[in-house]
Design a protein around this nucleic acid. Structure first.
Lengths: 220, 220
DNA sequence: TCTTCTTAGTGACATACTACCACTAAGGTG
DNA sequence: CACCTTAGTGGTAGTATGTCACTAAGAAGA
């Protein structure tokens, strides 16, 4: 570390963007093109621009929008990391968010000319993560699991219409364990988060499955 | 807002410091002496100093230490607020923490020459709070309640040795409702957070009460 | 046409947990 | 020594949850 530390802290955001691919939980990593640690893999994020961002959330959404995600259905703060050494450019503050991307919108996330992307298993990212992003990813996953464990339904991972079994599979992918169908559906009924879509069924080589959508006042 | 906005965001911390006074939950407010909003009441906090602080937590502890609190037993992040207008000095980022002060250390917190202090009911602060500190206080209280509701024991609010009834009163003060003694003590037993202090009893006009202390590996 | 297979969807039971309440224990007080 | 107060324990009932069995409704194939 030979370069001079900045006088003001660097303020940036990072997002753990989760989705489902083949009913498996995946998180978005990007391969850095720019100054610190070029070629390294990291959570998407970057330095905020006070002249255009109205908040940290705003900044995080702006940076993801640059990666072809116009509207994210959800963004939740996890924690803020800080310190003089976690970013080689100097004293930095980084607010971590997690977000859920509907599985049918995965193709909308594309690699740019300069940055490669990868959807990886959040428990075994494979790529060595730069900065303290390994720890951050673990925290984001923990926050997501905790929320689902407490009964929140990760409907934002699914298309606008879905079956109850799809909701169950999404929860199982997040929690990493199988859930009993009967008990799970009991919970779904007691919560008021789901509404039947009349006449909409998924057909296959079995009994058709009723489709549902998130109720009006649903918040994850 | 006529003054020019700063180019870099202001980074500061705020702490909702809770304690028990007469078995009631109280939070520390200070009366601002300095530049923005002099005379207004706010949560203790301030701008970090990258040259001496090693993290946001470090900065928060340093500012509280200046108010005669050398060692705080606990500090937990709640959320980070941000935006161009929440602080009149310009675009700012503020990380909110909450902390618990043992009730027997309340006298150690003293007003300085320039700043008055007040211990107020977090649900009805009485004083109008500046910035967005009203909202922040509500969030900190919610985070504390949520944690206790999920079974965490607020032992840091109590002296090093305490009775089971004192633990129950502390939880009741936080949650704002009475708790059944039988059910509460069952929970205490199943958790492994408490250890009897042999031979230590509190005597009064009734059966003596066994004293306990936090177990070795206890974390709030 | 009818059998079989697969997943949707419901219900029944045992267990675990918890709210509510009653009871005994062990001091002090008058 | 009767009585008051709080400490501490245990029991019961109602609720929530895990486990599992069963029926429902289509497609596929003999």
């Amino acid at each position: 570390m030979t370069e001079k530390k900045l006088l003001f802290p660097i303020v940036n955001t990072d997002v753990a963007l989760f989705t489902l691919i083949d009913q498996q939980l995946r998180v978005l990593l990007i391969q850095r093109a720019n100054k610190p640690d070029p070629g390294g893999w990291a959570l998407p994020g970057g330095i905020i621009k006070p002249e255009i961002d109205k908040s940290l959330e705003d900044a995080a959404l702006r940076m993801l929008a640059a990666k072809a995600l116009l509207r994210l259905p959800h963004l939740q703060q996890v924690a803020t990391h800080s310190g003089p050494d976690r970013d080689p450019r100097g004293w930095s503050v980084s607010t971590l968010f997690f977000s859920l991307l509907p599985s049918d919108q995965v193709p909308a996330v594309a690699a740019s000319k300069t940055e490669a992307i990868a959807w990886v298993d959040p428990e075994r990212p494979g790529h060595r993560l730069g900065f303290d992003h390994g720890q951050m990813l673990a925290e984001a996953l923990h926050a997501l699991r905790d929320k689902v464990e407490r009964g929140a339904l990760p409907l934002h991972l699914l298309p606008a219409r879905f079956t109850l079994t799809e909701v169950q599979r999404a929860c199982e992918a997040i929690l990493g364990r199988v859930i009993d169908k009967g008990a799970f559906r009991r919970q779904l009924k007691s919560a008021r988060d789901l509404v039947k879509v009349p006449g909409a069924f998924v057909r296959g080589a079995q009994r058709p499955a009723q489709m549902y959508r998130a109720s009006a006042g649903f918040v994850f």
